[in-house]
Design a protein around this nucleic acid. Sequence first.
DNA 1: AAGTGCTCCAACCGCTGTGCC
DNA 2: CGGCACAGCGGTTGGAGCACT
Length: 232
Amino acid sequence: MGRPPNVRKGSWTEEEDTLLRKCIEKYGEGKWRHIPARAGLNRCRKSCRLRWLNYLRPNIKRGEFGVDEVDLILRLHKLLGNRWSLIAGRIPGRTSNDIKNYWNSHLSKKMNPEATSTPDSPKPNLCEFSPNFDQWTTTSPIFTPTADQNPQEDERCSGSGRDQNPNKEEEDDEETSFWKNILVEVGEETEKSFRVEAIDERVEVEQDDLLSGFQLEELLSDMDLWRLLEND
DNA sequence: AAGTGCTCCAACCGCTGTGCC
DNA sequence: CGGCACAGCGGTTGGAGCACT
């Protein structure tokens, strides 16, 4: 269709990687339409972007997924469905493509051995919950961050309060904020794509600046979902 | 050793969302 | 407000490598 002729496809060579890396170091990320020309690459912008995001970007973690990571993926997938970029945003060093591939090749079979694919991926369920979020988050084993997780790598975490605070007493709050933030992000996205259908009388929660721009009650009404996850 | 089937992952494709004019 | 261009996302594909016969 609109694709220019003679644009190279297929695997990237070392030379192409080097050109792309140098170009982005010089001009920065973004403006992908300019990247191929600036880098001297005969590739389309999408290909350049994908290569950078999934392979060349610094701090990308490769190799085996750890137990903690798998556990987190399973739970996040249950909560978010096939929203790989959101899931990846919560697993430092892993890309959405990585997680998607890992899910498709390992976890989907484990979760649903009979199905070869999951045509009806779950959507976040935002209805009919009651609060007991903090208790769950502070008792679940998955809320212990692994040593190599670096929140700074995760731009979605920036400003979330999940930064370098070694104070043990505040860990619970950090963890809670971490998961609340997921709800906030899911909520913000979800609100755009499909409206919450049922809004009951819910939790009374203080409005904090984390949760601005979205209906807090709706988000925190998901707390039973957390409990459902825990009870698996 | 050769052939076949399977698995995994990098990359592509097409759709959607967003911003600008 | 509609159209366009671009960025970003999830689904899908192709092929390299491995396991099995």
